[in-house]
Amino acid sequence: MSHIPPLDPRVAAKKGFRESEERLKRFWKDASVAPDGEGHVVLLDGRAPKTPAHARMVLPTEAAARLVADEWAAQGEFIEPGTMPATRLAATAIDRVSQTREPVADEIASYVGSDLLCYLAEHPTNLVAEQARDWAPWRHWAGAELGVHVEATQGIIHRPQPPETLARVKTLALELDDFALTGLATAVPLFGSAILGLAVQRGALSGAAAFEISRLDEAFQERQWGVDADNAERTEARRAEAALLDRWFRAL
């Protein structure tokens, strides 16, 4: 989402994250967590790494801090930012989302205005049946459990959702703390669906299950025409991101 650009978790021993293209060598032996006020801090040989804005890496729960610390512990000789998604989420929550909660919530709400689960195929019959089986229950869940009432349509012509639906999603987003809001803001565009993002955030769906539901059309086309190697690689990367988001929400 535009208000939370990705952040590279590159860190120097005392200066925290660095904006540099050079490969940074691992400088610590032990990654651990410790209580810090009402949260938990990540420690590298007893020192807290900094975010790109030079804030301390303090997370709301021990489990979330452990998720980040495990990424630091798993690094080899050189730091590989692409292997540290939880660290990136934490830094984004601390540095960016905490300062832009309202616009981030607006962007999340905008997704329900064109939610993937509301645009149904007109044909072929098999795809129509699969969408009815896998998508309709989650539209119903959103209405019954969250008060998010959406209207489905067939075809790709945009059908606006009621303003109160967007307002309700924004309210739900703003009820979250910065860390959960960051996760939701990442999950919603990944799935193309505010409903699926909220379902994962609330534990009604696993990240893996939500991802498979979100790519139902894509999987249908693959069964018809085969799997492209490049697309398969991208799919695996997105699937891994969905699994990480599930762990992130459960840790909060």
Rank of each mutant, 00 (worst) to 15 (best):
M1Y: 07
M1V: 13
S2N: 11
S2G: 03
H3V: 02
I4K: 11
P5K: 06
P5F: 05
L7C: 03
D8C: 01
R10A: 06
V11P: 00
A12W: 12
A12M: 11
A13C: 03
A13Q: 15
K14R: 13
K14G: 12
K15N: 11
K15L: 15
F17K: 05
E21A: 09
E22D: 13
E22F: 10
E22T: 02
K25W: 09
R26F: 08
K29D: 14
D30E: 15
D36F: 13
E38G: 11
E38F: 10
G39H: 00
G39Y: 02
V42L: 01
L44S: 03
L44I: 01
R47Y: 10
R47G: 00
A48T: 14
A48E: 11
P49N: 06
H54Y: 12
A55D: 08
R56P: 00
P60F: 05
A64F: 02
E71I: 11
A73K: 07
A73D: 08
A74D: 13
Q75W: 03
E77M: 01
E80N: 13
G82D: 12
A86T: 04
A91F: 12
D106Q: 13
I108S: 10
S110C: 03
V112I: 12
L117F: 06
L117M: 04
Y119V: 08
A121C: 04
A121R: 05
E122Q: 06
H123F: 11
L127M: 10
L127Y: 03
A129K: 13
E130N: 04
W135M: 02
W138N: 01
R139K: 10
R139Y: 02
H140W: 02
H140K: 14
E145D: 09
G147I: 05
V148Y: 00
H149Y: 04
H149I: 12
A152Q: 10
I157N: 05
I157W: 07
P160W: 04
P163N: 08
L166I: 07
R168S: 07
V169G: 03
V169S: 01
T171N: 10
T171Q: 15
A173S: 15
F179H: 14
A180W: 00
L184T: 07
A185V: 06
T186Q: 15
G192K: 04
S193R: 06
A194D: 06
A194N: 05
I195T: 13
L196Y: 08
L196R: 06
G197L: 11
A199H: 03
A199N: 09
Q201L: 10
R202G: 08
A204D: 11
A208Y: 02
A210S: 08
R215E: 11
E218I: 10
E218Q: 15
A219S: 13
F220R: 01
Q221E: 15
Q224I: 05
W225D: 14
W225G: 04
G226F: 03
V227K: 15
N231S: 11
A232T: 00
R238C: 04
R239C: 00
E241A: 15
L244Y: 07
L244K: 06
L244H: 12
L244D: 07
